[in-house]
Design a protein around this nucleic acid. Structure first.
Length: 561
DNA sequence: GTAGGGTTAG
């Protein structure tokens, strides 16, 4: 009686916090007769929509203990909770629970498991499960299952196989729909194959599959990413003409692209259009606008958007602060930047690692390394753990401000903080050491890399070779160039240019010509700075014939390329 | 009337 009144369809949709759900659940289990399985399903489904996966699992366990009947839907929801929290193995134990209860797993069950496997990067197991489903006829695959497999392949970086799968699907009973086309189109765009994506759009239209807002948004983003903003805008107009309503995603993609291109005014007009069409700007929209203004150096305007964001109820998030703080630092407005940084905690937000990284980078850039050191200590007492990026910023900043010994001390502590050492951290210090001529320490640190099981990379060698060349130690630089190739790092354009410049400065023109020849042979060209050095020397040395020969070689090679 | 698929930033 009261039941039909209380549990109208979608009753759970009004619940938006987990405590209310738990209270309702406790009420439901005590009711006699019990609410229907569907009522429990809706409740559990709501918990999953709130991404409270562990709460869903614990409610399910309570249901089992309270002997509330469990359906295949409920089992699938629990399975999904495990899979969505990267616990696909527990998901498989739910599969066992199906059999134990005499309930048959269905297409949702297997789709969810495949999604879980893909999510944990267990690609071949996901593919194996799909094959098993087909060969053992465990269920009839439907379009959602195909969607999951195709998406999984795409996200695993195997767009080619996803396209093949799309073709196989086209020959079967279940035809590809807008979702699978969108998935593949998005993946092609992200791989930079935007032309292929466009022709897939034409193909789907040809086959009578109507693209939807997601299909168009993916392509618009793809076009923006390769700088074809005009084509993106005409696709936008085309979709509107086709009656496909752009949504927040679509607008945000275009607003972001316009802002990055410096067209903030156009972006603002688009936001007006967006509002007219009933789409409410969200944090993505505002952050794009704020960043656009910062890129233009228009900090007052950026701050205005930031304030509007606060008023509009969207509320600035960590990224908004990060963008604006960075903008202020770049304009040397240190007080404004630091004021915003302090404001974050006062506004009840917890500054995240990227805020700290932004602030540290800013402080070092303006030479405030004492404050930077304080912030670095402060973040640790606020239990924000430095990450890879923090250490790179710190090391770079310390070196730049002449605190190399402190940088050396810091790098020796990194591993104890649980952050893995990376060769690029050493590259920063090696660069710092070379720049102040401490070559002995450089050599020692380089030799210590192998003890730390780190392999020098091209940047490591280039840094040291640069340092050696600057000190005129060309023979040792050349030895390092040999060593790098022996260790599997191929010399690049930088390596050659540095050595050639070093040789030119020392007047070793015959050697320089050898390196230029080798370099041209490998398809690299001279930096403009090397070339102007060459021209200057040529004039200063009364048209030296060896230099003339080098210049001629470079001109020939640049004409060829 | 209940479960599983695709789109946005640093």
């Amino acid at each position: 009686m009261a039941l039909s009144g209380r549990f109208k369809s979608g009753f759970a949709n009004n619940l938006d916090n987990i405590e209310d759900v738990k209270n309702l659940y406790n009420h439901m289990v005590r009711m006699r007769p019990l609410p229907s399985v569907i009522d429990f399903t809706q409740l559990l489904g709501r918990v999953v929509k709130m991404k409270q996966y562990s709460a869903a699992v614990s409610l399910f366990h309570d249901m089992c203990l309270s002997r509330i009947p469990v359906s295949e839907c409920i089992l699938n929801i629990v399975l999904n909770s495990y899979c969505s929290s990267s616990r696909v193995d527990f998901g498989f134990s739910i599969l066992g629970g199906f059999f134990k209860r005499g309930v048959l797993p269905n297409v949702s069950t297997f789709s969810t498991l495949m999604k879980g496997l893909f999510r944990e990067n267990r690609i071949s197991q996901a593919q194996g499960l799909f094959k098993k489903v087909i060969y053992e006829k465990l269920c009839e695959p439907d379009e959602k299952m195909y969607g999951i497999v195709i998406d999984g392949l795409c996200k695993a970086g195997n767009t080619r196989m996803a396209v093949e799968f799309l073709r196989v699907m086209g020959r079967g009973r279940i035809k590809p729909n807008a979702v699978v086309y969108s998935t593949v189109i998005d993946s092609l765009c992200k791989d930079g194959m935007v032309e292929e994506a466009v022709s897939l759009l034409r193909e789907m239209i040809g086959k009578g599959v109507r693209p939807d807002v997601v299909t168009c948004t993916c392509l618009i983003k793809g076009l923006c990413n390769i700088g074809k903003l005009d084509e993106a805008r005409s696709l936008f107009n085309e979709m509107v003409d086709l009656g496909i309503a752009p949504n927040v995603f679509t607008f945000n993609v275009l607003v972001d692209a316009l802002c990055k291109e410096g067209k903030v005014k156009d972006a603002e007009d688009l936001v007006d259009n967006m509002i007219q069409r009933g789409q409410i700007p969200d944090r993505f929209t505002y952050n794009a606008l704020i960043e656009g203004c910062c890129l233009q150096g228009r900090l007052n305007k950026a701050k205005k958007f930031f304030d509007t964001m606060a008023i509009s109820g969207v509320g600035p998030d960590n990224l908004s602060y990060s963008i604006l703080i960075n903008g202020y630092f770049r304009k040397m407005k240190i007080d404004e930047a630091m004021h915003l940084f302090q404001e974050i905690s006062h506004k009840g937000l917890t500054p995240d690692i990227s805020i700290y990284n932004t602030v540290l980078q800013g402080l070092f850039r303006v030479g405030r390394y004492v404050t930077a050191r304080e912030v670095f200590l402060g973040m640790q007492s606020a239990t924000v753990n430095p990450d890879f990026h923090t250490y790179c910023v710190m090391l770079h900043g310390l070196c730049k401000s002449g605190q190399i010994d402190e940088a050396l001390e810091l790098i020796s502590k990194i591993e104890t903080d649980g952050v893995e050492l990376h060769v690029s951290m050493y590259n920063i210090i090696l660069d710092g050491l070379c720049k102040c001529g401490r070559l002995d320490t450089t050599r020692g640190l380089f030799n210590s890399l192998s003890l730390r099981r780190l392999n020098p990379d091209v940047a490591t060698y280039n840094t040291i070779i640069t340092g050696l060349c600057q000190e005129g130690l060309l023979d040792e630089a050349k030895e390092f160039a040999v060593k790098m190739e022996e260790n599997g790092c191929l010399a690049d354009r930088i390596t050659y240019n540095v050595i050639v410049q070093g040789l030119l400065i020392k007047g070793e023109y015959d050697d320089a010509i050898m390196y230029v020849e080798e370099m041209v042979g490998r398809g690299f060209s001279l930096h403009s700075s090397t070339f102007s050095m060459l021209l200057d020397l040529f004039q200063e040395n009364d048209n030296n014939p060896v230099l003339a020969k080098i210049i001629q070689k470079c001109n020939l090679s640049s004409k060829r390329s």
